[in-house]
Design a protein around this nucleic acid. Structure first.
Length: 457
RNA sequence: UGAGAUAUGGUGUAAUGGUAGCACUACAGAUUCUGGCUCUGUCAGUGAGGGUUCAAAUCCUUCUAUCUCAACCA
């Protein structure tokens, strides 16, 4: 179809937001980010996010940063960082800047002190269980921590001591002072920092306190001037908090938008569970061809083009999405059909003897590697007096709609002659062990009139 | 019995007050030097009730269903 006469594709809801923002001048250009946590390999669900984030920026002349959300050293590793980068490149995208949440640890810390000084954050000595209890439930408001009203000076000292390593893991946390009775659980004094005496894959032992996701993500977006921070639906209750930090800190106003994550029928799409399969050796690794990881489907033979086509077709919305895996497979077939070479093999052989073939003669035929490109590359296939066909390609008592070989039946051996089954040879048990056939010399491809038969094997 | 989000064929996704369209699936047929591809056709949808309007998937209203949130995970 002519590109120019093609109807413009309908905008998805995020594209609409972007076009409005661009038109109203709310943003000058588009900046997105893809923010994986380096704690596992990328899977098909990430492909959707990658295509969206990079695709949007591409479409509107913007850029996309790759930012690793590495705020939890106990789960993260450089092995994952490398694999993630490789997979994104393979999918066909190039990021602008490579960044890490850990690049901003100093800035984040400074802002935390700022919040403390302004009476908006406090150090809580309660243990995990007490904090959890104090948070209340979705239906019942929480209660204030007994440490909530510590003076700013004391909080500052305590926080600096936390950073200096004076306390053990879990002994203290830094919390934002917002509203323990908020109907949104996210506002019930969320934890900003926790103590973890653990080595970080990038910052080593510099830190023993690490920021939490909610405190980190919006600020990182802001620092990088991300205009459209696109994430999955489950984060929508986090958005008010995301906005709260940006507003309270008075920093560059990034905005978050949510879309439905991709689910596939018959497919496990949880990093946690995929990790379990790997750790329990139930699969040979992250790139086991049965895995829905990008490296897994790549090994399986899926192409990046097919994946991009799939992501383009599934659309973007806020409805929970459970895609039929058959659409993915259709995309893969579509792409592979055009580009893959064809070869033949026989898995369960049945001997065929050509009775009227000159003994010892070998005739070579040129077979196109891809039938869609008959003038393209060829390979040579020999035709001799003794060959093997797939056992399934012969039936003694064939139903009407069976188009392959049967007694007295004709079939073309692909790219070569038509043969006719003259005699069926059986062993003592009555199993078919050999077919004695004649070939029709007049059916040589490219010579004389083309004769069609129903079956080609 | 909290807050937020979402409801269109089996699955996804369009239609932004004016003919409910497209893709995948399924089924039927045509074609075929791959029982593939391609082509044609068929089945099939606005969660429910009320209201506004000449006209409602779309606006108003009541209800229902589903998902998310109570990690010192992201």
């Amino acid at each position: 179809m002519d590109e120019n006469t093609q109807e413009p594709k309908k905008l998805n809801f995020i594209e609409e937001i972007i076009e409005n923002d661009l038109a109203s001048g709310a943003v000058k250009s588009v900046m997105t980010r893809f923010p994986p946590e380096p704690n596992g390999y990328l899977h098909l669900g990430h492909a959707k996010s990658i295509c969206l984030n990079f695709g949007l920026a591409q479409k509107y002349g913007g850029k996309t940063n790759l930012r690793f959300d590495d705020t939890n050293p106990s789960k993260e590793d450089t092995e994952y960082v490398d694999a993630i980068k490789e997979d994104i490149k393979w999918l066909g995208f190039q990021w602008d800047k490579e960044r890490y949440a850990s690049d901003y640890f100093d800035q984040l810390y400074e802002w935390a002190e700022d919040l403390i000084k302004r009476g908006l954050a406090y150090v809580d000595d309660q243990g995990q269980e007490e904090i959890s209890k104090g948070r209340g439930t979705v239906e019942k408001p929480g209660t204030d921590s007994p440490f909530r009203d510590r003076p700013a000076e004391e909080n500052l000292q305590l926080f600096r001591d936390m950073k200096a390593g004076k306390y053990a893991d879990g002994e203290k946390v830094l919390r934002a002072k917002i509203d323990m009775a908020s109907p949104n659980m996210m506002f019930r004094d969320p934890i900003l920092y926790r103590i973890k005496h653990e080595s970080h894959h990038r910052t080593g032992d510099k830190w023993c306190i690490y920021p939490m996701y909610d405190y980190t993500h919006g600020e990182c977006d802001s620092i990088e001037h991300i205009t459209h921070s696109i994430c999955t639906l489950e984060f929508d209750v986090h958005r008010p908090l995301y906005d709260w930090f940006i507003k309270t800190l008075g920093i560059w106003p990034s905005h978050q938008y949510e879309f439905a994550r991709l689910n596939l029928t018959y497919t496990l799409m949880s990093k946690r569970k995929l990790l379990e399969l790997v750790q329990k050796n139930l699969v040979s690794g992250w790139d086991d061809p049965r895995m829905p990881t990008l490296c897994g489907v790549r090994r399986r033979g899926y192409t990046a083009e097919a994946l991009r086509m799939f992501c383009d077709k599934i659309g973007v919305s806020k409805r929970d999405q459970l895609m039929d895996i058959q659409l993915l497979e259709w995309c893969v077939r579509q792409d592979l059909n055009e580009r893959s070479n064809r070869y033949m093999c026989v898995q369960t052989p049945l001997k065929v003897t050509i009775t009227n073939w000159e003994k010892g003669k070998v005739e070579w035929f040129d077979c196109p590697l891809n039938p869609a490109d008959p003038d393209g590359a060829k390979r040579k296939v020999p035709f001799t007096g003794e060959m093997y066909i797939e056992k399934e390609d012969f039936m003694e008592d064939a139903p009407k709609k069976y188009f392959r070989l049967k007694p007295e039946g004709e079939v073309r051996l692909k790219y070569t002659y038509i043969i006719k089954c003259e005699e069926v040879v059986k062993d003592a048990e009555g199993n078919v062990v050999e077919l004695r056939c004649s070939y029709d010399p007049s059916t040589k491809p490219g010579v004389g009139e083309w004769r069609s038969v129903k079956g080609t094997i």
